[in-house]
């Protein structure tokens, strides 16, 4: 797993794996429903950290603070080789979002104000883009998604097949 977007992409992969494991060991006749995934585009904040020489702050520590709890870290991560970092703020928390980037005794701070207009949708981000992946889910996540849909379809088919056999024996 890449260090880029470690916090956020790691969360979506682990959740998918946990769900796959749960369904893989469940008896087929217990699965009566297809697996569905809903995704939507959301607002993301992209930043690039660099020194005043222009050199990127590559692999630098990132801490994000949300306006509704500014003293506590909302998310942590690492910039990529170009000093870039992307995160999707909670649009239900309008106000000043702050990002601190630190490396080898040097630090920088950036602020992004999320207004009431952006927050009015009330949508929470379901997916977070990793720099370089362009917002698409990683290969592992895609594979798990396909497997979940296939397993759900198989379970549904087995359920209805069992139902016809019971009718025939009656």
């Amino acid at each position: 797993m890449s260090e880029r977007g470690t916090v956020l992409i790691g969360r979506s992969d682990r959740a998918a794996l946990a769900l796959a494991a749960a369904t893989a060991f469940a008896p087929p006749q217990a699965l009566g429903h297809a697996a569905l995934i809903e995704a939507e585009a959301t607002t993301a904040i992209s930043l690039r950290a660099h020194y005043d020489t222009g050199e990127p702050m590559a692999e630098a520590q990132v801490v994000v603070y949300a306006p509704d709890d500014p003293a506590r870290a909302w998310a942590r991560g690492v910039t990529d080789g170009d000093g870039r970092f992307v995160f999707a703020p909670d649009l239900g928390a309008p106000g000043r979002w702050t990002v601190q980037v630190r490396q080898a005794g040097h630090g920088a701070v950036a602020h992004v104000d999320i207004g009431e207009a952006e927050a009015a949708t009330g949508r929470e981000p379901l997916a977070v883009a990793s720099v370089g992946a362009g917002g698409a889910p990683g290969i592992l996540t895609q594979a798990v998604m396909v497997a979940l849909v296939a397993w759900g379809a198989l379970g549904t088919a087995l359920y209805f097949r069992r139902g016809r056999r019971d009718d025939a024996s009656a």
């Binding site: 003293a71 702050t98 601190q100 630190r102």
Partner: peptide, 12 residues
């Protein structure tokens, strides 16, 4: 100086 930058956010 601007905001303190470190392991924790300070000044609250």
């Amino acid at each position: 100086c601007g905001e303190y930058v470190g392991d924790e956010r300070k000044g609250f």
